[in-house]
């Protein structure tokens, strides 16, 4: 039923039919972030072929799929870390990104979007020259303009929330992978984001360290934080996912609600889930 070579307009209309999860979402609720017709090309090869996606406040979206399917690129286009070639990112009613040729609308600034969206990377990307607490305090000080003392206090609170206050003065190199990722989560949360993006947060970790990071993520998921998670941890995805997206070859190939893993009927999706679980 998924037509590959459709125009943008028909894709947009198809979209609501394609994602049955929306049926369970009240009509009066508007999406926190929407992707509209996101296309991305690297050189001549197009890796995303017009992605439409809505993420509702308080929901947990999980994106999975084989490598090279474009799932990270979708996530990274949500805060315009990867600037789409075409398409719009609509966050709380403000349009960001390049938009569509010929359609001139007012555009928000990238930095404004990024200040409302937190991101956690596969490789943690902590600043190695700063201690754990300074990693967070620098971000708070630089982005919110709070004084350095206030920023340190906030940083201490955030570290406490991820259970790492004792390690405040350690440098990233002196922390385990799991601890580093928890600091990275604390750093993103210290800016009070309305949306959190997780780009394969456990893929670079030793298997025995995955648990602690997932526990922290679960903890924040339960507080009602809106999250979009790209992950290979199918167990975790099944557990927290309200909206499940299966990506393949630059398309959203299949999607569903919280019961997606049990009810999906698409052969390709089942194949993939079967191979990973």
């Amino acid at each position: 039923m998924f037509a590959r070579r459709t125009t943008r307009k028909t894709l947009a209309t198809l979209h609501s039919q394609l994602i049955p999860a929306y049926a369970s979402i009240p009509l009066y609720m508007s999406a926190l972030i929407s992707l509209r017709g996101i296309r991305k090309s690297f050189g001549t090869s197009e890796v995303l072929h017009g992605i439409n996606l809505d993420v509702y406040p308080g929901s947990h979206t999980v994106i999975f799929g084989p490598s090279g399917s474009g799932k990270s690129t979708v996530l990274r286009s949500m805060n315009l870390l990867e600037e789409p070639t075409e398409g719009s990112v609509i966050f709380e009613g403000v349009e960001y990104g390049p938009g569509f040729p010929g359609a001139a609308t007012a555009r928000g600034k990238k930095i404004e979007l990024r200040r409302q969206v937190g991101m956690v990377f596969q490789q943690f990307n902590l600043f190695p020259h700063l201690s754990a607490i300074d990693n967070i305090a620098l971000s708070v000080h630089a982005v919110t303009g709070k004084s350095k003392d206030e920023a340190l206090e906030r940083a201490a609170q955030e570290l406490k929330n991820v259970g790492l206050l004792k390690w405040a003065m350690n440098y990233p190199a002196q922390l385990s992978g799991g601890q580093q990722q928890r600091v990275a989560i604390a750093r993103a949360l210290s800016l009070d984001p309305k949306l959190m993006l997780f780009d394969e947060p456990t893929s670079a970790l030793d298997p025995e360290l995955v648990g602690e990071v997932l526990a922290v993520m679960r903890q924040f998921a339960e507080t009602g934080m809106t999250m979009v998670v790209v992950t290979h941890e199918m167990g975790f995805a099944k557990e927290i996912g309200d909206q499940c997206i299966f990506m393949d070859q630059g398309y959203i190939a299949d999607s569903g609600g919280a019961d997606f893993f049990d009810t999906c009927t698409n052969k390709r999706t089942k194949e993939f889930i079967g191979s990973v679980l």
Binding site: L81, I111, S139
Partner: peptide, 13 residues
């Protein structure tokens, strides 16, 4: 490269 990206993602100038 991830260092710049982390800064950008946090919304730093």
């Amino acid at each position: 490269k991830g260092q710049r990206e982390a800064g950008q993602a946090l919304g730093m100038s």
